[in-house]
Amino acid sequence: MKLNIPLLSEICKTPGAPGFEARVRALVLKEVTPLVDEISVDNLGNVHAIKRGKAGNGKRVMVAAHMDEIGFIVTHIDDNGFVKFTTLGGFDPKTLTAQRVIIHGKKDLVGVMGSKPIHVMSPDERNKKPVMEDYFIDMGMSKEEVLKYIQVGDPITRERELIEIGDCVNAKSIDNRVAVFILIETLKQLKGHSVPYDIHAVFTVQEEVGIRGANVAAHSVNPDFGIALDTTIAYDLPGAQAHERITQLGKGAAIKIMDSMTICDYRMVAFMKQTADQAKITWQPEILPAGGTDTAGVQRMGKQGAIAGAISIPTRHLHQVIEMAHKQDILDCIALLKACLEKIDQYDWSH
């Protein structure tokens, strides 16, 4: 199998800051509707797609992939037309200098992240760590022109195309559009094939601001089993110690053991490892000391909780202007998710 690069590129490029996922949701609906038995959108904006299983015993598997991307929101337009903003999700401020962004107002307009030029900084300012408040967006327009198209409350996303670099893909919003892509591609592979239990494929909203969509969706689905799909840190860079790496690019799908919000069910971890080994899928363990994913909502917000875990995609440069994932790792994640959904009834969950 080869990666569908045009689809992955389109998914990454399509804007969808937390709370403003309409465009990426429309893309998901277009791709997923022909692949499932039922599809709907809840009040919060989650896409809820169901592929019915053959067992007929009412057991439900929820698979969650969040659609939103880290972004910004307009808070002020000054007398000279410069735009101030606050974040929607977490950013590393030092990566923003002179980067292009898109403000989604009455029409999409490109701007540039600006800050005080180094030539006029004091020695103390030069040595200071950048903070978000140092930045503004330069639209190249007067205030009067800006106000024709932009207002307080408009969302902002990064302006970057997907490119292929060596064995990797590089783009904005790999977190978490690569998981959206993986879930779509898995549903494509399952089209026409029977699965043991009902699969509730949920493309969630507002993960980057507190796992809000997954909480609502899990409460509605009330899953017996849960699998979240999300990126994780690959700190396999110069200077990294072996124990700091968390995951590495090119070493396969990551099976989450825990993060700061979730201790994955030991049975799900064992099931994923066994399934990967039996199918000869390359995998690596993941323990993430900081950060959380939709796994937390899927595990805890159903009425009785869920036997839950996560398949994570190793990613470099997370929460920066661009992010990078390995093509084979993405393929391994698709293969592992498909195998888990097909074999989930064959595991002894009683111990």
Rank of each mutant, 00 (worst) to 15 (best):
A296K: 08
G297R: 01
G297D: 01
V298L: 07
R300V: 15
Q304T: 15
Q304S: 12
Q304M: 13
Q304Y: 11
G305K: 03
G305H: 10
G305T: 10
A306P: 10
A306H: 05
I307R: 12
I307T: 15
I307L: 15
A308R: 00
A308G: 02
G309I: 08
I311G: 05
I311L: 14
I311C: 06
I311A: 03
S312I: 05
S312C: 13
S312V: 11
P314D: 05
P314S: 02
T315D: 01
T315C: 12
H317S: 11
L318P: 00
Q320M: 12
I322V: 15
E323C: 06
M324Q: 14
A325L: 09
H326W: 09
K327D: 08
K327T: 14
D329P: 06
D329G: 07
D329C: 13
L331R: 11
L331T: 13
L331H: 06
D332E: 15
C333G: 00
A335W: 02
L336Y: 02
K338R: 13
K338T: 13
C340L: 14
C340T: 14
L341V: 09
L341D: 01
E342G: 07
E342K: 14
K343L: 11
K343W: 10
I344S: 03
I344F: 05
I344A: 02
D345L: 05
D345Y: 06
D345H: 10
Y347W: 15
Y347V: 14
Y347F: 15
W349D: 02
W349H: 07
